[in-house]
Every structure is written in C-alpha cells, then in structure tokens.
Design a protein around this nucleic acid. Structure first.
Length: 282
DNA sequence: CTTACGGCCTGGGTGC
DNA sequence: TGCACCCAGGCCGTAA
C-alpha cells in the first residue's frame, strides 16, 4: 500500500543517510522480485549514491560508478504492497523477510524487507531512463488542472481505473483514489469522458489536497507500512471513506458502501457521490 | 482502446 | 486448538 505519500516519506527519510555514500557490497536473500540480481551484484559495489528521489511509486537512486569509463545508472525500487527500506547497523537484528542488504561506506547497511515480495528492484542504465519514464504518466502533484482535465476527458474508462493507471498519473493507489473521489463528490464508476470540466477541476484540487495532507502526516499505515525511520504514518486517522464500509459519511452521515470497480474495492458515499446514469453495478 | 481475470505472495481475520 | 477460506492490492500477462 505504499502510494505516493508513503514513497515520498520514505525518500525524504532516506536522503540524509544515503546521498554521498558509496556502496561497499550487496547481499540478497530471495531474489525473485529482483530483475537481474547478478547485474546488481556486479554494478552496485563501488558506485556512489548521487541522488535519492521518488518517481511515481518508485524510490530511485542515481548512481555514479567508480570508474569513469562506465555510464551512470539508476537503481529503481518499488515497495509493492509491503516493502520497507531502512538503514541499519549490521549488528542490529534482521527483520523476517529481509531480502536485500546494501552495505554502505559509513558502517550502515540499507535493508530491504518485503513480506510479500510484490516489490521490484532493477537497474536502469542512463540511456534507458527516458523510455522507462515514458511508460509512466504525470506526477499528480505536478500536472496542471488543464492537462488533467484534457487527459481524463479523452478517456472512456472509469475514473477509478484512470486514476489508478500509472500510465495516466504516476503515484495514485487505492487509498488516495477513493479519498480524492469522495472529496470531489465523484462516483468511482463514472466514465472519464462523461465528467464535466468543473467536476474535474474539483478532482484535480482534491487530489492535490489529499496527497499534500497525507505527505504532511507521513502517509497512511494500514498494516505494514513504516517509513525509513521505522515510524508509522498518521494519515490513516484522516481517511474519510477508505476502509470505512458501513460507517457514516463524514459529510452526510449516509453509510459508506464498498463496491468493486475496475477490479478494486472502492469505498464511497452513495449520497455524496451519485452513481452514473448508465446502470452497471456490482 | 478497453475490461475481466488469474497469478504472484504472506499474514491476518473469520467461521466452523 | 486447528484449519479452510477469503481478503488485502501493487502490477503484469493473457484473453475477450
């Protein structure tokens, strides 16, 4: 469930301890979530971490190889559902399901723990960065209202599916999608092309407000999420609809419903977020 | 272009 | 106390 706010929080927590560090060695446990573990083992040691950033739901590290002869490259880490990244001292107890250890030159090691291994770890060479990024849409906090409206209105898919589609916006997940739609009074099954401009500019605003507030509270901890300092987020206490089936809508007291839209459980208020005209319930 | 569905993986909750 | 079962949802591949 790490979505944009959680990944942003992890990145902010990691930056201070990683930027400028040189990687000494790497070790892996299970490697089925790593695209090319051999390449990681060969390329990471000796390289220097120049930047730590978020790209959609990915944590990215720009790496400078020791020898100038080699091209710079990037390490992309996706936390999947249950991934955690934390710098630890080597003597500290190792949490179960820890599958990657990146030894740093300051006596710390960066550990990757992922119970379900839905995460990803891969190297992206500098020259492939733009094609990799081309598969992902715009950042929800950077896209303008105009661009957002045009993009959504051009699509016939359901708004829920569009917001979750990383090729449209990078970084939204199930929690923040439902929270944003509730704020904007939009039913998750509405078609993008059927939404009116004022509704979409309201949704654009809702997304910005929800994500910004969530970042401020360091994300939502539902089950496994912890940031790079091992602290849970606090935004889960501000959820208005997500996970609140049967509880009263904070606006109108109507009980929150849970339906499946685009294959995902979706929480909404049937009164504040009226269903689309074309029937198609589930 | 779109949707639906199964699969990956583990742990937590529920019901018998 | 055990166990079968479902669910959580990140994303991908496949079929329709």
């Amino acid at each position: 469930m790490p979505e944009l706010p959680e990944v942003e929080t992890v990145v902010r927590g990691l930056r201070g301890s990683l930027v400028g560090r040189r990687i000494v060695s790497v070790r892996f446990g299970k490697t089925d979530f790593i695209e090319d573990p051999v390449a990681l083992g060969e390329q990471l040691p000796g390289s220097r971490i120049a930047r730590v950033e978020r790209y959609g739901k990915f944590v990215t590290m720009a790496l400078e190889p020791l020898a100038d002869s080699r091209e710079p490259f990037h390490l992309f880490i996706h936390l999947g559902m249950t991934g955690q990244l934390m710098p630890r001292k080597p003597y500290e107890p190792v949490a179960p399901h820890t599958h990657a250890f990146v030894e740093l030159d300051d006596g710390f090691e960066l550990r990757y723990t992922d119970i379900r291994r839905f995460g990803q770890m891969k190297l992206v060479p500098q020259e492939q960065i733009s094609s990799f990024q081309g598969n992902l849409g715009r950042d929800p906090l950077e896209i303008s209202a105009r661009q957002f409206i045009d993009e959504i209105r051009a699509r016939r898919a359901r708004i829920k599916a569009l917001l979750l589609d990383q090729g449209v916006l990078r970084g939204m997940g199930n929690i923040y999608t439902d929270e944003s739609l509730w704020r904007a009074h939009i039913h998750p099954a509405r078609l993008g092309a059927h939404l009116r401009e004022p509704q979409l500019s309201g949704l654009h605003r809702a997304i910005r407000r929800v994500l910004s507030a969530a970042i401020r509270l360091r994300g939502s901890s539902i089950s496994d999420y912890l940031d790079a300092e091992g602290r849970p987020g606090e935004y889960q206490s501000r959820h208005r609809v997500y996970g609140r089936k049967g509880k009263p809508c904070p606006r109108c007291r109507t009980p929150i419903l849970r339906v499946v839209v685009a294959g995902r459980s979706s929480y909404f208020c049937p009164r504040c977020q009226p269903a689309p005209r074309s029937r198609r319930h589930r």
